[in-house]
Design a binder for these strands. Structure first.
Length: 574
RNA sequence: GCAUCGAUGGUCUAGUGGCAUGACUUAGGCCUUCCAAGCCUAUAGCCCGGGUUCAAUUCCCGGUCGAUGCACCA
């Protein structure tokens, strides 16, 4: 048994050596928080993204969009990132420690420090001691450290732009287009897979905390009053380990819930959140996350954003990093759309028709223009509009025109009670947001699939990646590099490639070495052409995990490999 | 960002103020009829910048990256 602390080093060593993950721009010395995906890493990442697409785009029907990674300032004013995505910091003049200024104030019982401006906060803390070196801070400068990368759009005066800190905003800013695309009906969703950027102060956990990372996010717009998922039955009986608020407060382990029961018990806020907890569980396990090392932790009330109705993190256990938040699933209510309404002045509404138009009696105030005109002349129109917006009392009403209160007597209008037909209502949808950190998923899959074992006194390193995630899906070898065997092997590799499957041909070195090479990068299947092949047109097919081999005919082997990768057939069934 | 420690071929590693070890890997060849066998050959290295010195991979200073602790972590 190898020490757990070494596993990370061994995995990252393998990842570097075999072209999964590299430190970026090494020839200039790399930069913390940025990584390169090598040839196999890129392939594996794409495969995982495609599994994600299978769930969200194909299964759920939420189409993918692609927005710029640079956004104008208004977007992030609305989202709250310009104001809220920064920390007020100061540097202790004595020990040069960087400190959270608001935390210092709050540690000394001064509440509300987080909403103060930088200058007020500087005044507030100047008499307080530095938490690191105990010296009184004195007149320090408090500054905002915003976690967004800022840039300028265009030359000259230059509009301010930011690299997006999440992909989500694109689905909100495109809301009205999306609504039309989905023909004005709730619920609908849109997804985006792409790069996001956060200028982390100190990214020191390898590929767990990156400054540039890939997110896969879905924004699902639902009717605020009916968070009933139309396909809830798919996951109603699905079981997921939930670490709810109750378990956390009682310091208890997660409880395995059926999703329908979790909703009924009120542990999960609604069917939508429960549905995506279950879907996420299924998705993560299908890409190779060990289900024993997966749990869903509910945000405690004080860590949850004030507007969120419910929020859960899928946490994956890493031998190196402990429980790592990898997916966030939140009911964000109408917070985001309303924020963009305020900032943009646009409306983000969906018209919901009633089944039958409702009759509603209304009091309508109708201005008497014949009397208003001569009396108010140029202001008559403004007065009339003001009257319409009022509910008059028995003595008439008072409106304000150009800052002056004007009394309107009842003879200047008539009040009518009328019945109108209301065809429907308008709502601002609520948003369910499952948000996946693709890079963290990739790390988790690498760690969970990495195994070292002894075979004939020789160490064997193997990545037990699911076949649809493995960067190379099948390897084809001639047993000997002569006697016509390479020709047959190359022919087989070509046939498999013809099916759109990545096959690697390798005739270098002993056969055992070639198997080991593929084991190390997780190739699930290997085909070997031997001398019998020349006589009976059969080859051996080797299973990575069991190292077992079966003989199968060359005829139809490309289809067979395809079925094995897709999971339509199993190796044990051959 | 601070403090401590570290950095030698792709990987692991020996070692040094004066020609830098070995193993594994990789490539080519020989051999080889199914799990890292053997033989021959080849490729490839002292993190970066500055200083001290006749001479620096080695000593000193600064930086980068990594590990650990502190701090930070929508």
């Amino acid at each position: 048994m190898i020490a757990m602390s070494d596993i990370y080093d061994n995995i990252m060593d393998l990842a570097k050596r075999r072209g999964f993950i590299w430190p970026t721009s090494e020839c200039y010395g790399s930069v913390a928080g940025f990584i390169d995906y090598g040839p196999l890493g890129s392939m594996m990442k794409r495969n995982i993204e495609n599994v994600w697409r299978r769930f969200y785009v194909i299964q759920e029907g939420y189409y993918e969009i692609e927005c710029p990674t640079i956004g104008q300032e208004d977007i992030f004013i609305a989202s709250g990132h310009v104001k809220g995505f920064s920390d007020k910091m100061c540097q202790c003049p004595s020990c040069r420690e960087y400190l959270r200024a608001d935390h210092i104030a709050e540690a000394h019982g001064l509440t509300g420090a987080s909403v103060l401006g930088t200058e007020d906060l500087a005044r507030l803390i100047c008499t307080l001691p530095c938490p690191a070196c105990e010296e009184v801070l004195g007149p320090v400068e408090v500054f905002n450290f915003n976690l967004m990368f800022q840039t300028a759009i265009g030359p000259g005066s230059q509009r301010r732009g930011y690299l997006r800190p999440e992909t989500a905003q694109g689905m909100f800013t495109d809301f009205q287009r999306l609504l039309r695309f989905y023909r004005d009906k709730l619920p609908f969703g849109a997804v985006q897979i792409g790069k996001s950027f956060r200028n982390e102060i100190s990214p020191r956990q390898g590929m767990i905390r990156l400054r540039e990372f890939t997110q896969a996010e879905a924004e699902i717009f639902v009717h605020p009053a009916g968070k009933v998922h139309p396909a809830f039955s798919r996951y109603a009986a699905y079981k997921v380990p939930l670490l709810g608020i109750a378990q956390q407060e009682a310091n208890q382990p997660p409880v395995v819930f059926r999703m329908d029961e979790a909703v009924r018990a009120g542990t999960v806020a609604n069917q939508y959140v429960a549905y995506y907890l279950a879907l996420t569980n299924e998705l993560l396990v299908s890409i190779g996350v060990n289900p024993e090392k997966l749990r869903f932790r509910q945000h405690l009330p004080d860590e949850r954003a004030h507007y969120a109705e419910d929020c859960w993190d899928a946490e994956i256990f890493s031998e190196r990093f402990g429980w790592v938040e990898t997916v966030g699933i939140a009911d964000r209510t109408d917070y985001d759309l309303r924020a963009h309404e305020r900032q943009s002045g646009e409306r983000f509404l969906v018209f919901i028709p009633y089944e039958t138009p409702e009759k509603e009696s209304r009091i309508r105030v109708v201005p008497n223009m014949g009397a208003l005109g001569p009396r108010f002349r140029g202001n008559a129109r403004a007065v009339a509009e003001a009257i319409c917006a009022c509910v008059p009392g028995p003595e008439g009403l008072t409106v304000t025109i150009d800052g002056e209160d004007v009394h309107i007597t009842p003879d200047l209008y008539t009040v009518r009670e009328e019945v109108v037909e209301v065809p429907g209502t308008e709502v601002v949808p609520h948003v369910i947001e499952p948000s996946y950190g693709i890079d963290r998923m990739i790390y988790a899959v690498l760690e969970h699939s990495y195994h070292e074992e002894m075979v004939d006194d020789e160490e064997r390193r193997v990545l037990r990646l699911p076949a649809n995630v493995a960067p190379i899906q099948v390897a084809v070898f001639p047993l000997m590099n002569r006697d016509g065997l390479p020709e047959i092997a190359m022919e087989i590799a070509g046939a498999i490639r013809g099916q759109g499957i990545l096959a690697e041909y390798d005739d270098s070195g002993a056969i055992g070495r070639r198997y080991r090479r593929q084991d190390e990068v997780g190739t699930p299947f290997a085909i070997t052409v031997d001398y019998d092949t020349r006589d009976d047109r059969t080859v051996t097919l080797r299973d990575r995990d069991s190292m077992r081999q079966v003989r199968v005919p060359i005829e139809g082997i490309a289809d067979l490999i395809g079925s094995l990768i897709e999971g339509h057939r199993s190796f044990d069934g051959l």
